[in-house]
Design a protein around this nucleic acid. Structure first.
Lengths: 151, 151
DNA sequence: GGTGAAAAGTCGCCCAT
DNA sequence: ATGGGCGACTTTTCACC
């Protein structure tokens, strides 16, 4: 499916997303046309999901990151899909994984302050469909946060 | 620092990162020159940290996400900075937060398989500077994963 | 902040190989 | 599947309101 050139293209683009097609082509020793075709094919096949603009949370007044471990009361399909739909709608929840083990979900949440999180917990999180309990942990520091995959 | 137009610009760009300057300008009811000036200023002031290409982990043979809760043996500055430097170098560790509470760090790790994670845990993670113990939880499903901040 | 315009560079798509 | 070339667009920078 993906050959060595595709991988080189993806690695180069991950490391330097602002590269023009010509620069990208030069880096992977291709001329611009085949490079452009491969790029479009990787986009339309979904290997490249899209692009993003990365903003600085602290600069935007959102210095608090919380990990919330969520346990559910019920585990029927209906409840799960309602919960996941609700999660999708809350922009403060930037990540949500369904988990094995003793908790059902982990959320990563971005907030303006601890006080705001307390309100968000009480007014929103605890009222999400099926939620039984939430255990919140605050991040002291973001050491690493990347969108680059290990390829 | 940021006025309503800057916020509109950032929100529009978060929702649609591939917009050209002209399209972006039209969406926020500005003409292209002031829009471009604001964009450059937001980039150089660091509010916009950069751009990224988002790849599909499953398509690239990396379907496993693990959360690793790390406890340290020692907490001196030397150990911490050595650990954080090591984390930075490991591309499999895509997120790392220093935490309050009973664990010292949370890693989010992307892997090709559970077997590979087992090797990575034994050969790499447990040998990172100062690590005392690691508790690993596997994600069953990624419900949400966004780079967009709630602004 | 807006307008208009022009230079440089890039993209997207022909073609021939 | 690659590389060349070209018209259409965009980005970037002006000077001026």
């Amino acid at each position: 499916m993906l050959d060595a050139i595709d991988l080189a293209l993806l690695r180069t683009l991950q490391a330097d997303p602002d590269l023009s097609i010509q620069e990208l082509a030069a880096r992977i020793h291709l001329s611009h046309t085949p490079c452009w075709r491969r790029l479009k094919q990787l986009e339309s096949s979904g290997v490249i999901r899209g692009r993003a603009v990365l903003l600085d949370a602290a600069e935007l007044g959102l210095p608090i990151t919380v990990f919330a471990e969520v346990k559910l009361r019920r585990h029927d399909e209906e409840t799960l899909s309602q919960l996941e739909e609700a999660v999708e709608k809350r922009p403060e929840i930037v990540e949500c994984f369904s988990m094995s083990g003793d908790r059902d979900y982990i959320f990563r949440i971005v907030m303006a302050s601890v006080e705001r999180y307390e309100q968000f917990l009480k007014k929103t999180l605890l009222h999400l469909p099926g939620v039984a309990s939430i255990n919140s942990s605050f991040a002291l520091k973001c050491v690493k946060l990347t969108t680059s995959l290990p390829i």
